[in-house]
Computed example of a mutant assay.
Amino acid sequence: MVAADLPIGDRIRHYRGERRQDAVAGLVGISPDYLSQIERGLKVPSLPILYALAQELGVPTAALLSERPPPAEETTESPEAAVGRALLGYGPARSATPVTAGVLRDRVEAAWHSWQTSGDRFSAAAATLPELVADVEHAVRATRGGSDAAERRAVLRTAADLYCLLRSYLRRTGRVDLATLAADRAVRAAEDADDPLRIATAQWNLGHVLLAANQPAEAEELALRAAERVGSARLPEVERNAMEGALQLVAVLGSARRRRWKEARERLVQHAAPAARLVPEGSNIGWTVFGPTNVALHALSIEMEAGETGDALNTADAIDTSPLVSLEREFTFGLEVAACHSQRRDDASALLSLLGLEGIAPEDLARNPLARQLVLTVIRRARAMHARQAEQLAIRIGLV
Rank of each mutant, 00 (worst) to 15 (best):
A23K: 06
Q37D: 10
A233W: 07
L365W: 08
A246H: 04
L249Y: 10
L129R: 00
E77G: 06
R383Q: 14
I8N: 06
P196A: 01
R16Q: 01
G146V: 13
Q203W: 15
R167N: 12
L249G: 09
R396C: 07
L210E: 05
D320C: 02
E80D: 04
T332G: 08
R234N: 14
L57H: 00
L313C: 00
A126N: 10
S301K: 09
L178V: 04
T332P: 04
L224P: 11
T76K: 14
D317N: 04
A226Y: 05
L197V: 11
D161E: 13
L355H: 08
G26S: 07
P323I: 04
D5H: 12
A96M: 13
S147G: 09
V2K: 01
L399V: 02
G84P: 07
A213L: 12
T315C: 01
V279S: 01
D194Y: 11
L87N: 08
N314F: 11
V378L: 03
A219V: 05
E191V: 14
P130M: 13
A139S: 10
E220T: 14
A63V: 05
L181T: 15
G89F: 15
A202K: 07
E305C: 06
L88M: 11
I30C: 03
E77I: 13
D177F: 14
D364H: 09
E80S: 05
A62Q: 07
L6A: 06
L300P: 00
A318P: 00
L327W: 08
E218P: 15
L300E: 01
W204Q: 01
G91K: 06
A233G: 10
R121E: 06
E228K: 03
L35F: 04
E74K: 13
D106E: 15
R13G: 03
A273C: 04
G231R: 00
G119E: 09
W204N: 03
Y51F: 10
I319N: 02
A200R: 09
A101F: 13
A233P: 14
A202H: 03
M1Q: 14
L393G: 01
E305K: 02
E303F: 07
L88Q: 10
R20L: 12
V378E: 01
R13K: 10
G102M: 13
C340H: 04
A316W: 07
L235W: 09
H208R: 12
I302H: 00
Q373M: 11
G41P: 14
G17L: 03
L374G: 03
L247E: 02
M304Y: 09
A179M: 15
S168L: 07
H386D: 15
S283K: 02
I38Q: 02
A125Q: 13
L57C: 00
V176S: 13
V252W: 00
S46K: 11
S349I: 15
S114Y: 03
E109A: 06
P362A: 01
N284D: 10
L354Y: 03
V230W: 06
D311I: 03
G89N: 08
G17I: 02
A273P: 00
A233I: 04
G89D: 10
F331T: 08
D135S: 12
L278T: 09
R16L: 02
R141I: 15
E18R: 05
A264D: 00
L170V: 08
L327K: 14
R259P: 13
P216E: 01
A189L: 05
A125S: 12
